[in-house]
């Protein structure tokens, strides 16, 4: 196994409250895996630390063999870490195309260019269109992003991350707020993107069908600790996980 991301005893407190407590795991390159856990278990805080939005108090985060614990978001993103957000994050007044194009331009280090129109940057534009096609948003390319339906905005958020051509992508509740039909579509789409873009994918999710449907490995967080880690089958049978989180209905 070749790890792309390794967490070693990552710990973070907010004023006495431990939100992440000695979390260690490592993620295999090219894998797709999930983090589950009750609300307030510290899942998003963990993502914030991996992406440099927060600094851990203790512990180490290693990405592709390099210690990124103290690096800034910008530096971590530049090394190939992408992220989509729980509260959908995009640029509401720009067109759908420009939302992704700005990411592609950033990837090409072109955002400083001042005298050429964005549409003249054909590499970025083509790349943005191909991402829109993969997401099924190409028909809405010229609409302003705030006009999109909620589900499409979630996809757009992922699309912005893909525009940066990340090696690893973190998705924070990609199916939240979706109808069951949309969830199924999104689940299949995530699996498709994972293969198409050669990603290592790590996602936080509450929808168990999605989790057990596509994750190769599932990790359970509870009160900031890693409670369990294993294949979907192992997690389903783990008595600790059942009492702590899954309850009866999943079985």
């Amino acid at each position: 196994m070749q790890p792309i991301l390794e967490l070693d005893a990552v710990t973070k407190s907010f004023g006495g409250l431990r939100v992440t407590s000695g979390v260690s795991f490592s993620i295999e390159k090219g894998s797709i895996s999930a983090i589950i856990g009750p609300n307030g278990a510290g899942k998003t805080t963990l993502f914030n630390q991996i992406t440099g939005y927060l600094n851990p108090d203790h512990g180490r985060i290693v990405f592709e063999g390099e210690d990124i614990t103290r690096l800034s978001t910008r530096e971590i993103v530049a090394r190939g870490m992408g992220r989509a957000f729980q509260v959908t994050s995009f640029f509401p007044e720009e067109t759908v195309l420009d939302n992704i194009r700005v990411a592609c331009l950033s990837r090409l280090n072109m955002t400083r260019k001042t005298m050429k129109s964005v549409s003249e940057f054909t590499d970025a534009t083509d790349k943005a269109f191909s991402i829109l096609e993969s997401l099924g948003l190409d028909k809405q390319a010229d609409r302003q992003a705030f006009e999109l339906a909620h589900g499409d905005q979630k996809l757009l958020d992922i699309g912005i991350a893909l525009g940066l051509e990340p090696k690893m992508l973190l998705l924070d509740e990609p199916t939240s707020g979706m109808s069951p039909e949309e969830r199924l579509l999104t689940r299949n789409l995530i699996q498709k993107l994972w293969k198409e873009f050669n990603l290592t994918l790590l996602f936080i999710e509450h929808d168990m069908d999605t989790v057990f449907g596509i994750a190769q490995t599932v990790r359970v967080l509870q009160m900031g600790r890693l409670l369990a880690e294993g294949s979907p089958e192992e997690i389903r049978r783990n008595p600790e996980v059942i009492t702590a989180y899954l309850g009866e209905e999943v079985l």
Binding site: F90, K113, V118, F121
Partner: peptide, 19 residues
């Protein structure tokens, strides 16, 4: 230009621009 687009993005969502 790309800079103009980046600046508009900064107004709308500076955190995302960092990402």
């Amino acid at each position: 230009s790309p800079l103009g687009l980046t600046l508009r993005c900064i107004r709308q969502n500076p955190d995302r621009v960092r990402f």
